[in-house]
């Protein structure tokens, strides 16, 4: 088997706040192959964004390992890490805040090329224009400032800036959830086109399963710092096994009002990551008919066949 582009093993990220430990990410493992898209789905507080930020080493991890292209990021010197960062880039949720309001758009896009000296200074301008055109903007936009653009256009600028350093992996953290509905599809389509043309891999983080299934080959569903179900996007969404995934799938908007009433309404709320339940993290809200004492005391492992795995004492993948 070939080495995956990104290999995350037992990633743990704990924060300390006011004397308590917040277990934001509590043992997450995932792989992404070159050119592949993994959708990481979960609600706020599930730890999905923290996974993205620790994978990029924007935050240090508590334990576990992140290997990119076979290299353990934890063992790299800070200079080597900066060089590796060229190959893994970030697309933000808030395209406005991700752009420095004082810098011209062309300057922002050129920044990565200047840092890594991948393009001769005289050729930078042409590259910037080519990138702007690649993401559907005009050459003349290079001299404008971020506030002159709509949300969708700013997201295109953010994508162009990330592409400027020729990455192999894009971590997209809720890339369309701040955009108007009629504009979301444009940005999703752009990401799909770029993936095809540039053979990009995506770690696509989102709370919206409907959006994720549109772009992801595989999905991993997170709940309270752990992955509760993973597999091919089509299988997980078409035949979810974990009760939490089933509730999420049932919440996907359905254009047929008759079918929408099959929605599963979960009781209660996600517990605080400062006080996770001792057993299965989903146990307090679980509606599985076989739920028992074991669920309350023992955390189920993520088990299954190949890439299809479920963390539930009463669901097996076979």
């Amino acid at each position: 088997m070939t080495v995956p582009l990104l290999e995350v093993r037992d990633l743990v990220k704990h924060y300390r706040a006011h004397g308590t430990v917040i277990r934001a990410v509590d043992g997450v493992s995932l792989d992404i192959a070159a050119g592949e898209t993994l959708g990481l789905v979960g609600e706020s507080g599930s730890g999905k964004s923290t996974v993205g930020r620790t994978v990029l080493r924007l935050e240090p991890l508590t334990s576990g390992s992140v290997r990119f292209d076979g290299n353990d990021l934890g063992s790299l010197s800070s200079a080597a890490l900066r060089a590796t960062r060229r190959r893994m880039q970030l697309v933000f949720q808030d395209p406005g805040g991700a752009l420095n309001p004082r810098r011209r758009v062309g300057d922002a896009i050129a920044e990565g090329m200047r840092i890594h000296r991948t393009v001769a200074p005289g050729a930078i301008r042409d590259r910037v224009i080519a990138l702007l055109e690649e993401v559907g903007l005009a050459a003349s936009d290079a001299d404008k400032r971020p506030h002159q653009f709509s949300g969708g256009q700013r997201q295109r600028i953010g994508i162009a800036r990330a592409l400027a350093v020729e990455p192999a992996l894009l971590v997209c953290d809720e890339p369309v959830s701040a955009l108007d509905v009629s504009v979301r599809a444009q940005v999703l389509n752009l990401l799909l086109e770029l993936r095809e043309r540039r053979a990009l891999a995506y770690l696509f983080i989102a709370h919206d399963l409907a959006v994720v299934q549109q772009v992801a080959h595989r999905v991993a569903v997170m709940y309270l710092g752990t992955i509760v179900e993973t597999g091919q996007a089509r299988t997980v969404i078409g035949a979810p096994r974990h009760p939490y995934t089933r509730a999420l799938v049932s919440a996907i908007p359905h254009p047929d009002p008759a079918r929408a009433s099959e929605r599963i309404v979960l009781a209660g709320e996600q517990p605080s990551p400062a006080k996770p339940p001792p057993g299965c993290p989903f146990e307090p809200r679980c509606f599985h008919p076989a739920k028992d004492a074991r669920c309350r005391h023992e955390r189920p492992a993520l088990e299954g066949l190949g890439e299809r795995r479920v963390a539930c004492h009463h669901e097996r993948v076979d």
Partner: peptide, 15 residues
């Protein structure tokens, strides 16, 4: 433009 579970396609029709 809204992704649908029953008809997953690789491209959405965008406005």
């Amino acid at each position: 433009a809204v992704p649908r579970v029953d008809a997953p396609e690789s491209r959405l029709e965008a406005i």
